[in-house]
C-alpha cells in the first residue's frame, strides 16, 4: 500500500511540474501532460484508498493521515470534474500543487493503527464525510479562483499587464467559475450538515449539541449563505466576491483544522496524531460523538 501512495505523490508532483512549465511556455502539450499525470495519480490514489477501505470494511477517516488522504482524493476528483466543465487550463497551477502538498503531508504523518469502530459503519457517515469534503474542495477552488481574479483585476486596474495578464483567463470567466464553485460547495456543505444531523439524531438522539465543530461549521455555512444571498439579490460580483471567497475559505480552514487543535469536541480524535486511549474512552463515554466525521 505504501508504494502506491508514493507513486501517487510522484504523479501529482510531476503533474504540478507540468502545469508550471505550461504556465511559462504556454504550449498545449504541456497542459495535456499535466492533466494526464494528475488523472494517473488520481487512479493510483483511488486504488490505494479502495484497498484500505476493503481491509477496514469502512471508510478510512480514523486519524489525520487517513482523513487528509481522503481530502486529497476528493480534491483531485473535484479538480478533474472542474477541468471538464470549465476547461480553465491554467487552474492546474493552483489545484495540483495543493493536492501534492496535502499528499506530502499525508506521507509525513504517521498512520497509527486504529481499531475499526462500529460508529463509522453507516451510509450516513460515508455521505457526510464525502459531501463535506467535496464541499470544502469546491470552496478551496473558489479561494484559488478568487486569488487569480484579484491578480488579473489588479493588472487591469493598475494598467500594468505583467506576467500573468496574458496567461490568465478573463475576469468574467474567473468570476463565473468562482460563483459556480461556491454554489456547488454550499450545496454540498448543506447536504453534509444535514446527513451529520440525521446521524447524530439516530445515534445520540440529538441534532445539535453545541460542539465547537458544529458551531464553526454553522458559522461557515452562514457566511457562504450571506455571500450567495448578496450575489443573487444585489449582484455582488468581481473583486468583492473574490475577497469574500478568500475569507470564507479561511473560515473553512479553521473549521477543518483549527477547531480540532484549539477546542475539545467529538471530532477531535480525527486530527490527533497519536490516538490516546483515554481520549477515545472519554469520547465514547461522553455519548455524543460523530456527526461530522471530519470536516
Amino acid at each position: 500500500m505504501e508504494i502506491l501512495i508514493i507513486i501517487t505523490i510522484l504523479l501529482y508532483m510531476l503533474s504540478a511540474a507540468g502545469y508550471f512549465t505550461y504556465l511559462f511556455f504556454q504550449k498545449e502539450f504541456l497542459h495535456k501532460i499535466g492533466l494526464y499525470l494528475v488523472l494517473a495519480g488520481f487512479m493510483c490514489h483511488t486504488v490505494s484508498i479502495a484497498g484500505v477501505c476493503i481491509t477496514l470494511g469502512q471508510i478510512p477517516v480514523h486519524n489525520l493521515h487517513q482523513n487528509l488522504s481522503i481530502a486529497g482524493w476528493v480534491l483531485a476528483c473535484v479538480f478533474l470534474i472542474f477541468n471538464y466543465i470549465f476547461r480553465l487550463k491554467i487552474f492546474g497551477i493552483y489545484a495540483v500543487p495543493l493536492i501534492s502538498v496535502i499528499m506530502v503531508a499525508v506521507s509525513r504523518i504517521p498512520n497509527e493503527p486504529v481499531q475499526a469502530k462500529s460508529i463509522f459503519k453507516s451510509f450516513w457517515v460515508l455521505s457526510h464525510v464525502i459531501a463535506v469534503l467535496a464541499g470544502d474542495a469546491a470552496f478551496a477552488f473558489a479561494f484559488g479562483l478568487g486569488i487569480l481574479y484579484l491578480i488579473q483585476e489588479n493588472a487591469i486596474k493598475t494598467k500594468k499587464p505583467g506576467f500573468f495578464f496574458k496567461r490568465l483567463p478573463s475576469l468574467e470567466m474567473l468570476d463565473n467559475a468562482g460563483y459556480v464553485c461556491i454554489v456547488a460547495g454550499f450545496s454540498l456543505l448543506t447536504f453534509g450538515l444535514i446527513t451529520g444531523f440525521v446521524y447524530a439524531k439516530a445515534i445520540w438522539g440529538k441534532f445539535w449539541v453545541w460542539d465547537p465543530k458544529e458551531v464553526w461549521s454553522g458559522i461557515t455555512w452562514l457566511f457562504y449563505a450571506a455571500l450567495l444571498h448578496e450575489r443573487l439579490a444585489a449582484g455582488w460580483r468581481g473583486r468583492r466576491a473574490a475577497i469574500m471567497a478568500i475569507i470564507g475559505f479561511a473560515f473553512m480552514l479553521f473549521t477543518y483544522f483549527g477547531v480540532n487543535f484549539l477546542f475539545k469536541g467529538h471530532h477531535s480524535e480525527f486530527t490527533r496524531l497519536q490516538p490516546a486511549e483515554t481520549t477515545i474512552n472519554t469520547i465514547l463515554n461522553k455519548d455524543d460523538p460523530t456527526e461530522k466525521a471530519s470536516d
Binding site: 495578464f165 496574458k166 490568465l168 478573463s170 475576469l171 468574467e172
Partner: peptide
C-alpha cells in the same frame, strides 16, 4: 501576436474583462 495598435489593444483588454 500581441496588439501594437491602439484600437486592437483596446479589444484585447475587453477580451480580458469580458472573455467572449
Amino acid at each position: 501576436d500581441s496588439a501594437v495598435s491602439i484600437s486592437y489593444a483596446a479589444i484585447e483588454l475587453a477580451r480580458k474583462i469580458f472573455g467572449d
